[in-house]
Simulated assay, not measured.
Amino acid sequence: MTRVGIKICGLSTIPAIDAAVKGGASHVGFMHFPKSPRHVSAGTLAEVAQRVPAHVKRVAVLVDPDDPLVDSVIAAGGIQVFQLHGKESPTRAAQLRQRTGLEVWKVMSIKTAADLNAGGAYAGAADMLLYDAKTPDGAALPGGMGMRFDWSLLSGHRPALPWGLAGGLDAANVAEAIRITGAPLVDVSSGVESAPGVKDVDKIAAFCKAVSQC
């Protein structure tokens, strides 16, 4: 049986990174978006990314980034994946992939089956799709709000790309989410926090343990 990948996102401290690595995370995510309570500067990113061992992939989460922003994140060092969490088009995703030579993930905001099907446009442009819950109109943040979508939408769906599941996951429901969707990777942020942007090492450990038992 293939092991389910785990991405702990929105990390900003050494204890939280260590907890994610100890728990068996395959990916760790760093939010580079000033409006987010999980934002880390390029300087902090350079420091904390060094803590991540080579077998764990380091992901930078960006929202509609321009080229100078992308360059500043690359210059900070250590990033292997760009996760695009805005309204980036397939053309833009492909440009970034070609320009940086790095893996590109595109977050798809899901509420209906049509939202899922829209991911097909990114075939050949991105390396992976991450299905997250669609936030309310006018929300200040594109994600990380602890919302989930109807997981049964993924039953029988055949994604055009490798994919992962995000949105409202925590230690209590992740096993059910994996059972319903067959997700090969799960991504958590607010579900392992004690307050917005404050990671809880015990919750990280519990989440990783729950996934490992699936």
Score class of each variant (00 low, 15 high):
residue 151 W to D: 06
residue 99 R to A: 11
residue 135 T to H: 03
residue 110 I to A: 01
residue 124 G to H: 13
residue 116 L to F: 13
residue 129 L to N: 05
residue 127 D to W: 07
residue 130 L to R: 01
residue 107 V to M: 07
residue 120 G to R: 12
residue 103 E to F: 07
residue 92 R to F: 14
residue 70 V to Y: 06
residue 82 F to V: 10
residue 150 D to Q: 13
residue 80 Q to C: 00
residue 125 A to D: 14
residue 95 Q to A: 12
residue 100 T to W: 11
residue 120 G to L: 05
residue 120 G to N: 11
residue 132 D to W: 07
residue 139 A to C: 04
residue 103 E to Y: 06
residue 145 M to N: 09
residue 90 P to A: 15
residue 127 D to V: 13
residue 97 R to P: 10
residue 127 D to Y: 10
residue 84 L to D: 02
residue 83 Q to E: 10
residue 93 A to D: 08
residue 101 G to F: 08
residue 141 L to G: 02
residue 70 V to P: 05
residue 140 A to F: 02
residue 109 S to K: 10
residue 105 W to Y: 05
residue 71 D to H: 11
residue 137 D to M: 02
residue 136 P to G: 04
residue 127 D to E: 06
residue 109 S to M: 03
residue 106 K to C: 07
residue 127 D to I: 12
residue 139 A to P: 08
residue 71 D to N: 12
residue 134 K to V: 11
residue 143 G to S: 00
residue 126 A to F: 04
residue 73 V to R: 03
residue 71 D to A: 14
residue 94 A to F: 06
residue 126 A to Q: 04
residue 139 A to M: 02
residue 105 W to C: 00
residue 137 D to A: 14
residue 135 T to L: 05
residue 147 M to C: 10
residue 110 I to T: 05
residue 132 D to H: 07
residue 85 H to S: 03
residue 116 L to T: 08
residue 133 A to L: 11
residue 92 R to Q: 15
residue 118 A to W: 11
residue 114 A to P: 03
residue 114 A to L: 10
residue 87 K to W: 07
residue 134 K to Q: 15
residue 90 P to M: 15
residue 104 V to S: 00
residue 123 A to M: 12
residue 95 Q to D: 11
residue 101 G to N: 09
residue 87 K to V: 04
residue 98 Q to G: 12
residue 91 T to V: 14
residue 109 S to P: 03
residue 72 S to P: 02
residue 91 T to S: 13
residue 137 D to P: 10
residue 130 L to M: 06
residue 146 G to C: 00
residue 104 V to P: 01
residue 93 A to T: 14
residue 92 R to Y: 14
residue 123 A to H: 14
residue 72 S to T: 11
residue 90 P to S: 15
residue 86 G to N: 03
residue 83 Q to H: 08
residue 148 R to L: 04
residue 102 L to Y: 06
residue 116 L to Q: 10
residue 117 N to Y: 05
residue 98 Q to F: 10
residue 103 E to L: 10
residue 114 A to N: 07
residue 128 M to S: 04
residue 104 V to R: 02
residue 116 L to M: 13
residue 150 D to H: 13
residue 114 A to R: 12
residue 141 L to A: 01
residue 91 T to E: 15
residue 87 K to Y: 06
residue 136 P to T: 04
residue 132 D to C: 07
residue 72 S to E: 14
residue 144 G to M: 01
residue 93 A to C: 15
residue 100 T to D: 05
residue 72 S to M: 06
residue 99 R to N: 03
residue 142 P to D: 00
residue 112 T to H: 03
residue 137 D to T: 12
residue 147 M to Y: 08
residue 138 G to I: 11
residue 73 V to G: 04
residue 81 V to I: 15
residue 91 T to L: 13
residue 74 I to P: 07
residue 138 G to Q: 06
residue 78 G to W: 06
residue 106 K to H: 10
residue 103 E to T: 13
residue 83 Q to A: 07
residue 141 L to Q: 04
residue 104 V to W: 05
residue 101 G to Q: 10
